[in-house]
Design a protein around this nucleic acid. Structure first.
Length: 866
RNA sequence: GCCCCUGUGGCGGAAUUGGUAGACGCGACAGACUCAAAAUCUGUUGUCUUAACAGGCGUGCUGGUUCGAGUCCGGCCAGGGGCACCA
């Protein structure tokens, strides 16, 4: 028995007239039948493309979805009312690991599981009354979708944007399978518990690094993105200007190439370090068991950078010496160090302990020299203890660089190295190429064939799509595609000899990197029609969680550029506007044993204490945290919509909290939204006096209250419009409530106030329409209209009614408020000053003395300085 | 460690971007209606002093700029997030 069942029954009684269940179903049906939200590209009309991040079909919507899709729906309906041709589609990010986990755990085929989940989630979403063009619905696991990305991948390959190289994966030696980072828990496989090993596999990569500079520079053009997301992408790409420097290796005929951003400190070098995966390390290990063990130890850390980063910094002295590039008599030791990444720069560094904290720690640990070479400009020298000096300054102890500031020294050093052939300036990026291979079944097959004679051969376009086989089993470890008896065995397209299909599938970020373009032409024979995509793209407003701030958004930006390069489109940036919503949070509950409790298991007893519904035992309340299954602090949207209706849930999502901040789900909050909707309904369904007819003429003159109401109506229109333009939904709700408070005070029998009341009610309904569309549609009907509110234009504010004749001005003495006065708008400064000085409170403060100074800000404030 | 964001009543949050701090809502308290409760309606509600009139204090802390600071600048504290042995 749900905890609030009794309360709910009372509510339903109260709602005898407004039955939200019937009403919401009725309007959803009407909108669908009249095809209100089905659109076509129409170059004669201005377009607006609103997109919410499409969900993974887990089977049930959660509050994060409700918030996300409510925000998008308000924007879509508002823009439609403002006259735009609005594209607002929805689909399913349908490939991924959970379907395979379900297959293993519940013996259900991933396809069946996924399509059933889609069906139930679609029903749940449709119950929210969202203004989607459902005719454009897509599921990325459908061959009609993924066939296009197989073609794209072939095109990328032709264009040199896709290539193969070896890279490391997490390998579970017990399950004989590759693990995702999230399947590695404390360095062990999540199912087997076996320590995870690193393994090298040959995999497909996309050359996102070709676009590093462009992706970085173009961030500047994304002026409707949150600054912090732009900053995160900026940092992720991580451009750094430095130099490559060649250190000859003593007694060998080769050179060690290092990347550094501090080539000015080259005379402070005291060691070199290479990555455990550096070719030189591998070579040296061949004759050195201790080094083999050290490298193995480094590889046990796993592939995730988070794991590597927390490990203790360690080095292994190879015994080799590197010769200083500018002094043949100077040698430094070469270490293998677990903190040097093969993927960044050259996989090798030189260490200057005096001016880099990590190098200093390393030098102290292994007893290496510390030679300062940069000092503050006004100091004689600099002493290095346990803290490095990484700052600006002037070079010393550095021969030809002595006396130069850091930047100048870098330039001189780079010139010298270049002239001697010992190095050159170089720009490195943190960004790495995108590995797209996954050793999984439930993903898009990669359209290549491995032939013993011809090598890696693309599947001919005529043979696309390469479809997933359906008859697969999940009862054995490894990739079902690899194990399938026949699927992978095909003749080589080039020579016809027996060959094997690629059994890896794409990373699921592949699907989400272009789905927004497919929506422009969801049923087309090609990936998307150039003209249709040209009309609809870029997405004008993209809405979703901050967790996708880097990967998904960056991959999509790269994809559009790659598609442009391959002739698909001229659009470069997929998302012109971005809104990142906050999380939905809820209080957490624990029973006396410290076990988590669902909110539905908690109630209040007669003394107001929180207790368990079943046992009456006391409950400990924890702080509000992001809703998550593990903490059980979840509220099921389906239950909320079932007991309060979609409009109530939508209104609550919009009230109080601004969209980019976290939102606290509270019962009190949902009750508040519910009460307001009922009040609104009563205001129109049971007015204190019968409402005047629609279209009633404005009386030639209005009394004070009616005139004030008329102004308030127009100010509300202007204010709500502005709020919605800026996504200040919580402020829009507050303004709408203010207007309804005011309308409740009007006298419905006086002709002028009755007219103002109807104007006000109609405005209220139109303004709240995008937020609570079902109730608003019903009220629009009750107000006597025969048109659909969903097809009704947005109200317009009369600019003449937005300004007041008189203004309230604050009067301060020495910056402290001492009173207010009402004055005509834009009255002369002298007048305001005189009126302020005449205030008794002001005269008392001045105590007979003349003011030293008076500041008058017209229409705002008078500050008297005594 | 670095970077970013956020700190305003009992709570969620407003404050036209330097000009009346606390809009709107939640909660609480009091009253009306009711046999009673629920629902609904009305009022009060930052805090301290005061019987009241008034006045003091108040936007994480602390300095500063300014006639005037929640808003700008410096330093610090707390919470949240992102990234990382980035060479």
């Amino acid at each position: 028995m749900p905890w609030n069942a009794a309360r709910r029954r009372i509510r339903l009684d109260q709602m005898a007239r407004y039955n939200f269940k019937e009403t919401e179903a009725k309007w959803q049906k009407t909108w669908a039948e009249k095809r209100c939200f089905n659109v076509e590209a129409d170059p004669s009309r201005p377009k607006y493309y609103v997109l919410e991040m499409f969900p993974y079909p887990s089977g049930r919507i959660h509050m994060g979805h409700v918030r996300n899709y409510t925000l998008g729906d308000v924007v879509a309906r508002y823009k439609k009312a403002r006259g735009f041709n609005v594209l607002h589609p929805m689909g399913w990010d349908a490939f991924g690991l959970p379907a395979e986990n379900a297959a293993i755990e519940n013996k259900v085929h991933p396809a069946k599981w996924t399509y059933e989940n889609i069906a139930s989630m679609r029903t749940q979403l449709q119950g929210m009354g969202l203004s989607y063009d459902w005719e454009r619905e897509i599921a990325t696991c459908h061959p009609g979708y993924y066939r296009h990305e197989q073609k794209m991948f072939l095109d990328f390959h032709k264009a040199g944007l896709a290539y193969r190289k070896e890279s490391w994966v997490n390998w579970d030696p017990v399950e004989n399978t590759v693990l995702a980072n999230e399947q590695v828990i404390d360095g062990k496989g999540w199912r087997s518990g076996a320590p995870v090993e690193k393994k090298l596999l040959s995999q497909w990569f996309l050359k996102i690094t070709d676009y590093a500079e462009d992706l970085l520079q173009a961030i500047q053009t994304l002026d409707r993105w949150p600054d912090r997301v732009r900053l995160m992408q900026h940092n992720w790409i991580g451009r750094s200007e430095g130099a490559r420097v060649f250190f000859p290796i003593a007694g060998r005929d080769e050179k060690l190439e290092v990347f550094t951003t501090r080539h000015d400190t080259l005379f402070g070098a005291s060691f070199c370090a290479i990555s455990p995966n550096h070719p030189l390390a591998g070579e040296l290990a061949a004759g050195n068991p201790a080094l083999v063990e050290f490298i193995a130890e480094c590889n046990r850390i796993g592939t995730s950078e988070a794991a590597i980063e927390t490990a203790e910094k360690k080095g292994f002295d190879t015994g080799l010496k590197a010769v200083h590039p500018l002094d043949p008599s100077w040698q430094v030791p070469i270490y293998v160090a677990n903190f040097v990444l093969m993927e960044y720069g050259t996989g090798a560094i030189f260490g200057c302990p005096a001016h880099d904290q990590r190098d200093l720690d390393f030098a102290r640990k292994y007893g290496l020299p510390v030679v300062p070479v940069v000092k503050p400009a006004d100091a004689e020298t600099v002493e290095i203890g346990d803290t490095a000096f990484p700052g600006e300054g002037v070079l010393f102890n550095s021969r030809f660089l002595d006396g130069l500031p850091v930047e100048e020294a870098k330039k001189v050093m780079a010139e010298k190295l270049t002239a001697l052939g010992l190095g050159q300036t170089n720009i490195s990026y943190r960004l790495r190429d995108w590995g797209v291979s996954r050793q999984r079944y439930w993903g898009c097959p990669i359209p290549f064939i491995h032939c013993g004679d011809c090598g890696i051969v693309p599947v001919p376009e005529a043979d696309l799509p390469v479809e997933l086989p359906e008859d697969v089993t999940f009862d054995a470890p490894g990739n079902p595609l690899d194990r399938h008896p026949s699927w992978k065995h095909v003749p080589c397209p080039t020579c016809g000899k027996p060959a094997q299909r690629e059994t890896d599938t794409f990373d699921t970020f592949f699907e989400s990197s272009w789905y927004f373009a497919r929506f422009a032409d969801a049923r087309g024979e090609t990936a998307f029609d150039r003209d249709k995509a040209g009309y609809w793209l870029s997405v004008d407003q993209y809405i979703g969680g901050i967790e996708h701030a880097v990967l998904h958004l960056l991959y999509s930006r790269f994809f559009m550029r790659a598609l442009k390069h391959c002739g698909y489109t001229d659009v470069e940036e997929p998302f012109a506007g971005l809104l990142t919503q906050g999380m939905v949070c809820h209080e957490t509950y624990k029973d006396p044993d410290g076990k988590w409790l669902f909110p539905s298991q908690v109630t209040k007893d007669s003394n107001g204490n929180n207790v368990m519904v079943d046992t009456g035992l006391p409950v400990t309340i924890g702080r509000s945290e992001k809703m998550s299954k593990s903490r059980k602090n979840v509220v099921d949207p389906v239950n909320i919509i079932g007991s309060y209706g979609a409009d109530t849930a939508r209104l609550f999502m919009l009230s109080d909290s601004p969209p980019e901040r976290d939102l606290d789900w509270t019962d009190a909050g949902i009750d508040g939204a519910w009460r307001y909707l009922n009040r609104l309904y009563r205001l129109i369904d049971e007015p204190s006096a019968p409402l005047v007819a629609p279209g009633t003429q404005r009386p030639s003159s209005l009394g004070e209250k009616a005139a004030a109401a008329e102004k308030a109506i127009h100010k509300t229109i202007a204010g709500v419009s502005d709020d919605l333009d800026r996504f200040h939904f919580n402020k829009a709700v507050a303004r709408i409530r203010e207007l309804s408070n005011l309308l409740e005070g009007l006298n419905g029998t006086a002709a002028d106030e009755a007219w103002a009341l109807r104007q006000g009610l109609e405005t209220l309904v139109r303004l709240i329409g995008p937020m609570v569309p079902h109730l608003a549609e019903e009220l629009w009907l009750l107000l006597g209209h025969t048109t659909l509110l969903a097809e009704t234009p947005w109200p317009e504010a009369d600019p003449a009614l937005l300004v007041d004749d008189s203004v309230t001005i604050a009067i301060q003495v020495n910056g402290k408020l001492r009173g207010t006065i009402d004055l005509p708008r834009d009255c002369p400064k002298e007048e305001a000053e005189q009126a302020a000085l005449a205030l008794p409170a002001v005269m008392q403060q001045l105590d007979g003395k003349a003011p030293r100074k008076v500041i008058v800000v017209p229409n705002r404030i008078v500050n008297i300085v005594g």
